[in-house]
Design a protein around this nucleic acid. Sequence first.
DNA 1: TTGTACGCGTTATCAG
DNA 2: CTGATAACGCGTACAA
Lengths: 340, 340
Amino acid sequence: MTRPKRATIVDVARMAEVSAKTVSRVVNNEPHVTEAVKTRVREAMRALRYHPNVAAQGLVRSRSYLIGLVYEKPSPSYVVELQKGALERLHGERFRLVVLPVESVTEREEEIIALLRSAALDAVLLAPPASDNAALMRELRDGGIPFARISPTRLLGQGPSVAMDDVAAAQEAAEHLVTLGHTRIGVIKGDPSHAASDARLVGTMQALATAGIALHPELIEAGLFTFDSGLAAARRLLALDPPPSAILAQNDDMAAAAITAARECGLHVPEDLSVVGFDDSDISRVVWPPLTTIRQPVQDMAYRAMDMLLHMLKGEPEQGDVHLAHELMIRRSTAPPRAD
Amino acid sequence: MTRPKRATIVDVARMAEVSAKTVSRVVNNEPHVTEAVKTRVREAMRALRYHPNVAAQGLVRSRSYLIGLVYEKPSPSYVVELQKGALERLHGERFRLVVLPVESVTEREEEIIALLRSAALDAVLLAPPASDNAALMRELRDGGIPFARISPTRLLGQGPSVAMDDVAAAQEAAEHLVTLGHTRIGVIKGDPSHAASDARLVGTMQALATAGIALHPELIEAGLFTFDSGLAAARRLLALDPPPSAILAQNDDMAAAAITAARECGLHVPEDLSVVGFDDSDISRVVWPPLTTIRQPVQDMAYRAMDMLLHMLKGEPEQGDVHLAHELMIRRSTAPPRAD
DNA sequence: TTGTACGCGTTATCAG
DNA sequence: CTGATAACGCGTACAA
């Protein structure tokens, strides 16, 4: 219907009585342009409400000014933090963020690779578990598309990454429970396709082994990082005889579910059951009692990863891997076990 | 460094021994191509791993295949739902979603308009309060860029929209409390720049007026749709003498905060204080007790709005406004007031 | 300091 | 049914 043709660089040139190339120079802040000409061109641009055509620029520069963020149905809070960090770094830059949530990286590798190929991305941010996918990374590398990995757990050195130490963090969380006097500790694992789940389990087991505490298989329940999966897992744990006196959930969503499950059983947190989460997402302060959890600086990680990408886009060499510190946030969901 | 030139349409043409235009026809599923030629071209495309260059296509078709989603720091749960719905509809389509969170639409109108102009978006999804911004809509209309509005409250008829009835929903929520026997009801308002805040207040007042209950000004507290703002507001409300026996928060984040504030005061929910939320976001089931709330079909709304956009992009006429039904979800955060 | 010719990869037009 | 040619809007190389 309405197609008010946008002004082009030629229109501006005509109005300012210069050549198109000169306008181009002004637009791109190139040197060798008289101040007088510059202002004349700028006025014309304003008058015509001129904005460069991104498609045309992209065609000649082979740049799309698009950066993709690939992630896979993690908890909402994680996604939000991720986007916040990435967008914060992008503020003021020309690049825009395209969100690419995918069903299952491992199951539909081909489909996702095709998606990336046709999406014309200048760079890609890989969140777990996509950050562990070899085929994906190979494809990006072959295509000459810079990428940064967030919290990878395998194939380190295959690409710049930002991560925290999952093993050490889980260990610290478990030690906290041990120090409080817990000996029967239940674990709710995260999505098995996220390698972080195993890393966190390893850390937990190390802490318990050091303390001489056995972790019976029945005390390890499978979850998927979602509230519902956590609820089911927590119910199974609490149905055990005897039930654990503490539950270590591998993310906050599942920890919140553990609190809910406890309430269903008439149990008080932390008096009857201590609960530890992971991530320090918004949810950790929304529930009651507020969660003792591991602060995983997701937003900072995304910010740093995006920063790496921007540097690479400027032609600078790949940076190495960055490790960000975690922190045990002790709040009110943990306490010594009831003296029986 | 590495720049393995991608195959172009000409490469494919050469390999399949046809002209570039014929390849183009195959790519775009245009008629008038022999099956034999078609398969020959397809094979060449596969062999060369050919993917059309989006920038070049965009240049000739004046399309970017980018759809923007404009929103303003609302609660994380709202953003997630919004994106889910929009992306769900986009699945399988060529268009990609660019997220455009903005600081404050009203304060930085100019900046945002410039952003839109330079972003080369084919269409835009406006979430509140951007969906109420006249300047923004004028700009889009002038630019011939289709847009759809989510939950607008003013300037209706200025553009296709998807909404729910905030007044009726708030009324229903308040009636629920009245029916339970509450007469001293506190309200935590949302961000004043979101017109929904006023609409919901109006609905609440209508319900109370009908029941002959006075809503004292001291019972109306300001919030910003965030947990923290809700916490502060709820604390003020509970410090009143006498405190309200029920709190109606204008979204779930703030309702969750009200529960936390109640716990701080040693109050039990719902025995000592009933709490009603708004949105039925994830958070409503994560907290304890699970929130009685108004189910606002945010995901469906985003899906429908995106659907409208896609239709308009195909040249079909603008659709009218769509209303989606809300639903009062009665859960465990509300009960009759304690008999004094 | 400024301008000209050309090419980026694709599609539309209009012949053949 | 198929192909040659021009155009989309801009940047690069090279002149002037």
